[in-house]
Design a protein around this nucleic acid. Sequence first.
DNA 1: AATATTCGGATATTTTTTATCCGAATTAAA
DNA 2: TTTAATTCGGATAAAAAATATCCGAATATT
Lengths: 164, 164
Amino acid sequence: MQISKGVEWACHAAAILMSLPKDRALRADSLARYYDLPSAYMAKQLQALSKAGITQSTRGARGGYRLAKSPEDINLWDITTAIEGNKPVFRCTEIRQNGPCRFDKNSCKKACPIAKSFALAEKAFRDTLANINLIDIAIIFAQDTHEEDILKGSAWIQKEAVPL
Amino acid sequence: MQISKGVEWACHAAAILMSLPKDRALRADSLARYYDLPSAYMAKQLQALSKAGITQSTRGARGGYRLAKSPEDINLWDITTAIEGNKPVFRCTEIRQNGPCRFDKNSCKKACPIAKSFALAEKAFRDTLANINLIDIAIIFAQDTHEEDILKGSAWIQKEAVPL
DNA sequence: AATATTCGGATATTTTTTATCCGAATTAAA
DNA sequence: TTTAATTCGGATAAAAAATATCCGAATATT
């Protein structure tokens, strides 16, 4: 039961894009180099973000990525599902309907209590992530990070940023 | 991000063991046949439950499994970790420490805000499951299931049960 | 001694995750 | 109009994890 690395990368990429001026974009390659990540695979995650409407991409020369909406409207659950899809974590295979004591169809109208319980847990997980947006991340980040590190980061982003 | 099938099977197996009289056990093979599941793989899950102290096994002729503690002291998180271990779902690979803007060690003393957020979500997930025990499952099951199906199930279990 | 059963490790198969590559589409600039 | 730069989408490959089976050792009963 592991979340794919792509989700971690996508969250960081979205966080990086926050400190990008409104009229600029960052190439997929720049975003990969920022944390020294495999560029081809990072590119795939960014494409998924665009498909989900989280980033907005410009193709061609001087193309790149930027956030498609304001950071407070992008939460961590959005990013997670953009990368992972949103299949349920617990897959109920309805084994109740097999074996010598299998239920008749009428008894299976209600969801299995075990599946129900996991669905509840998943909702708690989902709601927690849905309540944390990029601004929240930025605030914690600003509190926890030395100012020199913050400045170094945004300077690098400025340098790499592509004017539209 | 999927929970393995073994967790589903283990939860059902534990639920089945609830309706077993105190002085009886059920063989791994019986538990597998109850829902028509691959017997060798089900056996693995049961071994994991024993290792975690959820079931108690007796080896040898007339051996089998039964619950090691009372059902209200066995919750769904116990069963989940017995099968899956409890590695965190979100693996923070500390990519902050790589690339041209990598943090110096001092800035990394605090956990990454993204990792923190996922840890919070995982806690919500965990706490939900930890609050649901086998008795809760039995109650919902009893409410949702036709009495004839319940009786059919416990009769089969009686028949298969091994006297200690 | 014979039989029945769990335990633990080894191994095989399938699925998912991780990663790369390339051609097509698109855009800006020369 | 051509060239260069870039994202997009699909194909493919490699690595890791989940799923599944098997077998010998340990253990208990008859």
